[in-house]
Amino acid sequence: MTVNTTDQTGGQPLNMGHDEIFDDLYRAYFAPLCFFATNIICNDDDAKDLVEDVFLKLWQRKQRFENAAHAQAYLYRCVRNSCINLLRHGKRKTAKLDLLIAETEDFQEAYLEEMIRAEVGGELYRAIENLPSQCSKVITMSFIDGSSNEEIARALNLSVQTVKNHKVRGMHILKDTLPGSLFVLLLLHPFIK
């Protein structure tokens, strides 16, 4: 990662035309932005297409950002605008209703709330994603899917001991990235045995 997504204040200017920056921003924000868009337009596939298009457009424009916080705010604003466009021109039956809601004054407030939901969740998502891949799979299956060590071992074709090792290693790394109660929360989670 060359982009530090948790650093809200400082940081380097970013250029979306730069391959490495593009990939980093994509990995950091694609899933939280899809989550955000799905909550507005209620359709996973449309949300994905829409977020892909936003990234593609910003790449073509070689969009520059002052820092990571600027990039974050800008991406959410672009995706919100695309969502509203989709509702306005979409063919879905519920679109008109959604649009009525989107045009009320409360929408601005609601949109900011959805962004908060997506990004608070996005922090943990990114922390897990940045683990080494096998480790990340084990943590995801155990924490998110609630699979047992035996189930994970079978699915990933590993020994149960290796699964346990990955868990310990993953937890160790997460502990450094997520000090405090989010890490405790992870440990206390009923799915982790």
Binding site: Y26, F30, A31, P32, F35, G121, L124, Y125
Partner: peptide
Amino acid sequence: DRQAAAIAKMESFGTEQSLLHV
């Protein structure tokens, strides 16, 4: 619970596959 659900949802969007496509 909301955290776990949100992350599971985010995982389901398949970032790497999508990045490849883009």
